[in-house]
Design a protein around this nucleic acid. Structure first.
Lengths: 295, 295
DNA sequence: TCACAAATGAAAGATATTTTCGGCTCGGTC
DNA sequence: GACCGAGCCGAAAATATCTTTCATTTGTGA
């Protein structure tokens, strides 16, 4: 059997109460009024509870529910819950303020989540899919891949490396500028070098990319400043986005979110291109870890 | 499988179901799935009805409701009614399809961004602010903090550590299980240990946390399975959310997004509490890096 | 294969909702 | 002022629904 609840929701309860109040008895009006003025609160009550609240009896509550067009109190209550939820969701979040020192922790969560979501949307909107596609192709066909990043971006570099390794590619992350340069010297055409820097001007990351570029490797820059120095040595520039920053929310935070999205896109793109080998490799790495989990 | 799961922002139920499904038994999973895929329909059913629909018993339905965090089926049903109402009035979900092997790169970007945004919303909705507040207090007043994480979670552990160091706290990330345990032995009351594991059952991370717990340190778990083994040794459990995963989008991807949000919240919370020392420390670390940027 | 533990559903038990039914109020009539 | 009747009202019985218990089944590891 197919049951429909749709009909219960949607129509304005307050209006219904107004029209039907004249045909109600005194105690029923009390119940109706309570229900109309605080749907959420009443939804939390049982018949008995609502009866007590309004100083009436269960029978009256049920009668009121009937008048309002529901088969019984149970259904009225469901409708009230729905109404409460709608009211709740109707409220605009209106998160425009910055995070303050005295914000309660719940607000911090809301604001951070909101900002990071915003950053993701901005990044996705601003990402040049042509450049991205080119970078994916380069990575998918690379003999080997070096990834440079220091500080917070170093973690993103490692993340990319981990992912590429998982699908059977050869990749290495470098946080040590000296070693990075040393390694970059070994690169040649057909290899790929990726530099990750929010500012676009981190010398420790630009330097190895320059070397790789000069050696003929395909170079990719993931940066928040597509016009910055790093772009100079990059065949493909992938732009990340930044949320407004503040004292309690350093730029590193949102740039990381943005960088990770780009990295994920690269990864999925490469996995698509190399699906034949990527799928079994992924399965294998998953399998290999299974026994490290307790029951 | 012809069931279409409708996802709406703020529909934390679908996320909750995903989070908790692993700790459910088979028949409970059937109930959870029914509830997640058709909230409106299920809201119209009594326990018995839902039990019949899913081919289980009333007892199982009630047990599932409990797992999902409601005192009983009655309350789950009210929540479902609310959800149904929201869906009714809510906007249509933009993207429901999974990432396919032959998706153009532009679609990949859109879908990934959408999913990560969804993950953030779910995480924020599901985060227990009381636990979070407690964890923040512990971190802010800790003598020292150890953070454990391996694999993808290892990067998150490092991210947290970097952040804490930046505001002048003493923190260390451990990816090496042996060293982690060795260090955990040194912990004592007043110290904090944080374990980060998506599965909640990563032995390499649980072990050091157990040691820290037994040494009297305050322990925090950041996990996608709040009922998993890791929770056993955690004073405070912070739950991350999981997006539906697929071959081209491993769970590690969305869990990382979720974990990072939690880490960011911890960081900002701690920075608030220790503002007097955090602000100058942040400024100083920013200053120290300035000369490493080219013009 | 057996023994044990976990999962499951039937049915008993507890709660919530609906119905019944008789007392009660209130307005009108004598 | 007393009486009558219609309809309102709530206590309590009856029913529906939800929750708990417990024996059975199922699955799992030795």
């Amino acid at each position: 059997m197919t049951q429909e609840v749709k009909e219960i929701f949607g129509n304005s309860l307050a209006a219904k109460v107004r029209t039907l109040v004249p045909s109600m008895t005194r105690s029923m009006q009390r119940v109706a009024e309570a229900v109309a003025s605080d749907p959420a609160g009443c939804a939390a009550l049982t018949v008995t509870g609502l009866a007590e609240l309004t100083g009436t009896s269960e029978a009256t509550v049920v009668r009121t529910a009937r008048i309002l067009g529901y088969p019984g109190y149970r259904d009225l209550r469901l409708a009230l819950a729905g109404l409460a939820a709608q009211q709740q969701s109707g409220r605009a979040p209106a998160i425009t303020t910055d995070i303050a020192v005295d914000d309660p922790i719940a607000d911090v969560v809301t604001k951070l989540a909101y900002d990071e979501r915003q950053t993701l949307a901005d990044t996705a909107a601003g990402l040049d899919t042509v450049q991205l596609g080119a970078a994916v192709t380069a990575l998918a066909t690379a003999r080997r891949t070096d990834v440079y990043g220091v500080g917070a971006s170093g973690l993103v570099a490692q993340d990319l490396t981990q992912k590429l390794l998982r699908i059977g590619l050869i990749a290495q992350a470098h946080s040590d500028p000296h070693l990075a340069v040393t390694n970059a010297v070994q690169l040649r055409p057909g290899d790929v070098a990726v530099a990750i820097t929010h500012s676009g001007s981190t010398g420790d990351v630009i330097e190895p990319l320059r070397v790789a570029f000069e050696r003929g490797a395909t170079t990719v820059a993931i940066t928040g400043r597509p016009g910055g120095p790093v772009a100079q040595y990059a065949d493909h520039v992938l732009t990340t986005s930044t949320a407004r920053e503040s004292e309690l929310r350093p730029a590193a935070m949102s740039s990381r979110t943005s960088q990770l999205l780009v990295v994920d896109c690269l990864f999925v793109g490469v996995a698509q291109r190399t699906y034949e080998t990527a799928a079994p490799a992924l399965a294998a790495s998953y399998e290999a870890l299974a026994h490290r989990h307790r029951r």
